[in-house]
């Protein structure tokens, strides 16, 4: 990578520009799944529908994921200050919260399957599982990336000066969080409230 010793045209870091470019494209990825989900809200083929959601439970795991964004940004801040020790602490906290969220999702899926909502049940079920499942995959990849930052900084591969690396992972992590902000409202809350009325 020639970025380090050459001036860039727009004065931006290649990797940050690349990450933002990638995130722009991710909106079209999740947007398609959300659209399919909205189209199939009522297409439950007689099986369970949105009433199966456990809003209080999902609210808590959503809250955990949201707060992981705080620890993530604090990790980056610590790194920017050159404080790798605090950075690693916040990174672990972020990954931990991500893991809690994922555990919640696994638990939730298990409950739903036991209540009869399998992926083959209906287009509604398929679109719910594949949408939230892909989001879960993104969280999982995020945890892997966070752990790599943790380990690399331990073995000296990430230096205190290289906070762009933490920032990149952070951008990805916040994006995954943003997507969940949308999913929590559009997939869980609004349909549930519409059903309640």
């Amino acid at each position: 990578m020639a970025a380090g010793v050459e001036t860039t045209t727009m004065g931006l870091d290649h990797r940050k520009l690349g990450m933002w470019t990638f995130l722009g494209s991710e909106f079209l990825f999740f947007g398609a799944f959300v659209s399919a989900y909205l189209l199939y809200l009522d297409t439950t083929a007689g099986g369970p529908g949105v009433e199966i959601f456990d809003i209080p439970f999902t609210s808590i795991s959503s809250f955990v994921l949201l707060m992981s964004s705080l620890t993530m940004v604090l990790a980056h801040h610590a790194h920017a200050q050159g404080d790798l020790r605090r950075m690693r602490l916040w990174i672990l906290a972020t990954a931990g919260q991500g893991a809690v969220f994922l555990g919640g999702q696994v638990f939730e899926f298990n409950v739903f399957v036991r209540e009869g909502l399998t992926i083959s049940e209906s287009p509604f079920a398929s679109s719910f599982y594949v949408l939230t499942g892909f989001h879960g995959m993104h969280v999982f990849v995020g945890i892997l990336l966070l752990m790599s930052v943790y380990v690399l900084s331990l073995i000296g591969k990430i230096k205190p000066t290289q906070h762009v690396k933490t920032e990149m992972i952070g951008l990805y992590w916040h994006f995954v969080d943003i997507v969940w902000v949308v999913i929590f409202t559009v997939v869980y809350l609004i349909p549930e409230i519409a059903v309640l009325e």
């Binding site: 727009m10 520009l17 933002w20 995130l23 722009g24 494209s25 909106f27």
Partner: peptide, 11 residues
């Protein structure tokens, strides 16, 4: 930089 925001919001 505003370039980043433009990238994301375009998508």
């Amino acid at each position: 930089s505003r370039v980043f925001g433009r990238m994301m919001y375009t998508g």
